[in-house]
Nucleic acid binder design. Structure first.
Lengths: 237, 237
DNA sequence: GAGCGTAGGATTGCCGACAATCTCTCCTCC
DNA sequence: GGAGGAGAGATTGTCGGCAATCCTACGCTC
């Protein structure tokens, strides 16, 4: 089986057939913030909504639970993950360990095709951002990081980065202070430039700063609705 | 659902009831090299062997596939993972990014109870190694690394480390040159000492060297039996 | 004798149904 | 009026069965 994490997008809006397709649909819905964190994902409900059996949905939910995008409670069901402040900090700490050095490797290994792939990806990002599709913009800007790990030719690390990036997207959707302006374009462009020039040290430093900026751009002040049951009790969301 | 990766050992040899218990049983069997890499894990076979239904086994195999300990091929079944040379190198590279800095954090945060836990763990390791239970020794020596990540209070990184350590154990079982002498005891003891003294820089350096030693202790020369079908064709193994 | 197509067996993929568990509501009792 | 408990409803956990797919082996043709 191919990695669910690596599945690009064999998605057909009308009829997702396999568990992987269902997982991908749910993943995008969660990341685009179309279903709020804490929302219960009933097996029957998802199944009838997507026109697949419960077994398929079940497998998809298990896969998403492994990615920590949903949380499964025994005999209770699956809920969209609700990362808290501590989790957010931890995830960016993990990224800070993995990504800067990986960016350095990518700069050392990148060939012309890799760089042009990155530039194309960047153009897609800008287009999504320009058209106001913030869900897609967040998703693409995350995949940019995965792309770099792939250029570094590190499958294992790329998988970790993808997992972290997905969770980061959820966190950004939750805690981002300036939802209108995802102003990280400069960092990505600077990264591509450094990689294109083979400037490993520069890429490493830019990536590190970029991650610091991302984390500091979050509003991680404690909120009264941190607790799940409390938020549910307040009705709504 | 608790992380399958984190499940300690709710295992009762006679009757594993849940998918998690089955996954744990299979995990230990794979890591102790009781089932050879490449072995097919038939759902019916595993189910009847452990006295559980096919659905349970199915879920357990899916979980192990997420950890890359088994590989699932659609309509073909699950096979014990067979990490190749490249994968081995990648895994140790990932560990080199995560663990040294995490060891430094652990040294900065460790309290007395943490250090005594580590020493107890070390004693268990030595005992397993002394009694010739090399499967258990390998497993415990891996869990030592996870323990350090937990002391660093990094749940996310600890999960990654656990995943990497499990796969490393499989790799060690496959490629270790000196199966009789798992002579890494000194590094672990030095690590505990550094952590006990709060010597972060020392712990970081020891961990880095330890990982380099582990990788260089492997025999990663290309082997003719690298291919799956070839090895199967040669019968045996 | 070698290569190819086909039939058979076996295994997984998926679905429906039943049992187990949890939550919510309502009733009773203090 | 509030707390505790029992029952109903709903949802998940698990099992068996059928269909789809794949591998193997056999037979046929060249």
């Amino acid at each position: 089986m191919a990695d669910p994490i690596f599945s690009s997008a064999p998605i057909r809006p009308g009829a997702p057939a396999s568990a992987e397709a269902v997982a991908d649909t749910l993943r995008r819905a969660v990341l685009a913030h179309r279903v709020a964190p804490g929302t219960k994902l009933s097996e029957d409900e998802v199944g009838s909504a997507l026109g697949v059996g419960r077994a398929i949905v079940r497998e998809a939910l298990r896969a998403l639970a492994h990615e920590h995008l949903v949380e499964i409670q025994r005999n209770r069901g699956a809920f969209v993950a609700r990362p808290d402040k501590r989790e957010a900090v931890e995830i960016f700490e993990a990224r800070s360990l993995l990504e800067p050095r990986t960016a350095r490797s990518a700069a050392a290994r990148a060939e012309y095709a890799d760089v042009s792939d990155l530039r194309r990806h960047l153009a897609e990002e800008n287009e999504a951002m320009g058209s106001g599709d913030s869900g897609r913009a967040v998703y693409l800007s995350g995949q940019f990081h995965v792309q770099i790990a792939r250029i570094a030719n590190q499958v294992t690390i790329a998988r970790f980065v993808e997992s972290l990036v997905l969770r980061s997207s959820l966190i950004v959707a939750l805690y981002w202070q300036r939802p209108s302006a995802i102003c990280e374009c400069h960092a990505h462009e600077a990264l591509v430039d450094a990689i294109a020039m083979g400037d490993g040290a520069g890429a490493e430093e830019i990536m590190h700063g970029h991650l610091v900026d991302l984390l500091s751009g979050l509003d991680l002040a404690e909120r009264p609705r941190e607790g799940v049951s409390l938020a549910m009790a307040l009705k709504g969301l």
